[in-house]
Design a protein around this nucleic acid. Sequence first.
DNA 1: TTCTCTTGACTAACGGTACTAGTTTGAAGA
DNA 2: TCTTCAAACTAGTACCGTTAGTCAAGAGAA
Lengths: 189, 189
Amino acid sequence: MVRAGLDKEIVVRAAISIADSEGLASLSIAKLAAVLGVKAPSLYNHILSLDMVKDDLTRQGMLLLLDITRDAMAGVEARKALEALGHAQRNFARDHPGLWAGAQMPVAGWSKATQKVANVYIGLVLAVLRGYGITDDAAIHSARVIRASLKGFIDLELGGGFGYPEDVDVSFDTLLKNLDSGLRMRKKI
Amino acid sequence: MVRAGLDKEIVVRAAISIADSEGLASLSIAKLAAVLGVKAPSLYNHILSLDMVKDDLTRQGMLLLLDITRDAMAGVEARKALEALGHAQRNFARDHPGLWAGAQMPVAGWSKATQKVANVYIGLVLAVLRGYGITDDAAIHSARVIRASLKGFIDLELGGGFGYPEDVDVSFDTLLKNLDSGLRMRKKI
DNA sequence: TTCTCTTGACTAACGGTACTAGTTTGAAGA
DNA sequence: TCTTCAAACTAGTACCGTTAGTCAAGAGAA
């Protein structure tokens, strides 16, 4: 009965590692316990439930994504900012598929704390739109379009939804160009 | 031990009903058996596994979506066709959230038969693009953009991802307008 | 009508999941 | 050194999908 010296952070870190390498779906209490060298019930001295671990994982993933995106967007505007946002998200999803998958779960299952972090992300999208001169109601609608397009593309790419051999990078550039031209149109009207 | 008169079709039909009313995630052998008035193991006289039921459900969902979309797109071109495609998908997802969720699962988990049906869907998107004068490689890239945008929007809407009170219908129209203007741009170049 | 054979139900069980209760022990602080 | 709390443990609950083996319903043949 040697003590493993665990705490919630270590457990969540292990969960992130498992989710990113084997997929969020195969994250389980049993696997977590095995990785940490402990029997499954012992984990409950540090965590409330597997769902809570996933919530923590999601929130940490969002915070990391926010940092990365903010850095990428620093000092650029409009189209450059949109591209920075898009590439930052796509790269994040490829580097951390488990964290990305966590952030794509239905909002209803998140804790208040995690929902709060999610709202900060919207702020970043709205910042991009200010660069296009789009504010207020129109910004909300355009923000939804940007979020939806990026999320849909990344989910499809990660899920193996692009079967044809054409270069997916070119497709992503097409997506960003489309969004840019749509937003510039919107500004003119 | 009265015989229930089951067959695979009846089981899949019940699965669709459960998935659409309670969500794909809560579709289980136990629930399926309860609904059909039979003990769980009895189902295995008619099905191979729960995964195979989900695959059938997905394929049937896709076929239904294809029918609905084809009908909506009949006799219209370019922007009208794009709008028909978009609204048909969004309405389908709202009417059949379980079938929609099935069709969004990672491609790797599908049978060959189901993947084949999925490919037919791409044909519909390419038909829309022909109306814009976009063919070949460019069409593949634009088709990915359309699929990604629609999928992302619908997934976000169904998952409760749009927190602000602004009218989601307006946002969807914005998405379609964006796509349309992007595609018309692309045609000119 | 009776017999046979197939089909579709059943019960019991296996290994997996998350989780809880109760027990023991390591290790830190008094 | 003793006490106390935290963190591990074992054992067990209640689910999940799935398999093996059993038995009877019901259809077709004699």
